[in-house]
């Protein structure tokens, strides 16, 4: 467990040392929340508009989506920063140490998930100043869900990064994966009113389940799937992606 906890320690330290970067990375979700959210809130201010959004105002509808998006983006980036470790020798450090490689990579993923969750919490805390109809009781379960999402997505990031090996494809993968997954998650508009083909894509998108669950906990909107489905799908994905990450990491000698 020593190597596992050390890797989490390392992620936390790195997180705390990069305050400027952390604040910078929060600008994006804040823009979505304030400019996008407030803008559409005005437009959706006609009678019956809340019917589209499960009975709440648009802002209350949007917040859980933005929180889930933040966790998703941050944990994905956390996962993919392992390319830096590969390039700057930290991986080699681990490989020449008499330490469990599985523990090391799982610790790395868990650390990444925790830091992503913290950034989600910051956005959530800010949201309480923007809209007053969020449920305080939903914070803890949302955190739990965020952590699981973080594990799944950081695991996915690590697996991709170990395959990719270089920074070149980084930007491309980011736009190719993160943007469509965000739009297909129901973070901004309901899955139910999407065209059929989009609904189909939304259903295979793990982020959809994170948004669905968080939205129930924070806004009190009945889940599209069911809470059990949300938790099972996300936990299952976390296990699968972390497993793939471990396998990919095992293969990663510097041959």
């Amino acid at each position: 467990m020593m190597v596992f906890s050390t890797m989490i320690y390392r992620e936390m330290k790195r997180f705390m040392h990069s305050k400027a970067r952390v604040i910078g990375s929060l600008v994006n979700p804040i823009i979505w929340l304030v400019l996008f959210g407030k803008g559409w809130s005005g437009a959706f201010n006609f009678p019956g508009a809340s019917m589209i959004f499960g009975g709440v105002d648009y802002m209350t509808y949007l917040v859980p989506g933005i929180v889930a998006m933040t966790v998703f983006n941050m944990s994905f980036i956390q996962g993919i920063t392992i390319i830096w470790d590969k390039q700057f020798g930290f991986i080699k450090e681990i490989l020449v140490a008499p330490a469990s490689r599985e523990e090391a990579i799982l610790g790395r993923i868990t650390g990444g998930a925790i830091t992503a969750m913290i950034q989600g919490v910051i956005i959530l805390a800010l949201s309480f100043f923007i809209t007053s109809s969020l449920k305080l009781s939903g914070v803890i379960p949302t955190l739990g869900l965020s952590f699981i999402v973080g594990l799944a997505v950081a695991g996915m990031g690590v697996a991709i990064a170990m395959r990719m090996g270089s920074m070149e494809g980084f930007q491309m993968i980011m736009t190719m994966i993160m943007l469509p997954m965000t739009f297909l998650s129901g973070a901004f508009y309901p899955v139910k009113t999407m065209p059929n083909w989009m609904q189909w894509l939304a259903k295979v998108n793990p982020l959809t389940y994170a948004v669905d669950g968080s939205r129930y906990y924070l806004s009190g909107i009945a889940p599209t799937f069911s809470l059990t489905t949300d938790w099972i799908v996300l936990s299952g994905l976390a296990v699968i992606f972390m497993g793939i990450a471990v396998i990919e990491f095992r293969k990663a000698t510097i041959d």
Binding site: K13, R14, F88, G89, K92
Partner: peptide, 10 residues
Amino acid sequence: FQDPSTDREL
């Protein structure tokens, strides 16, 4: 190692 391998942020 030949190439630097420290954690530069830490």
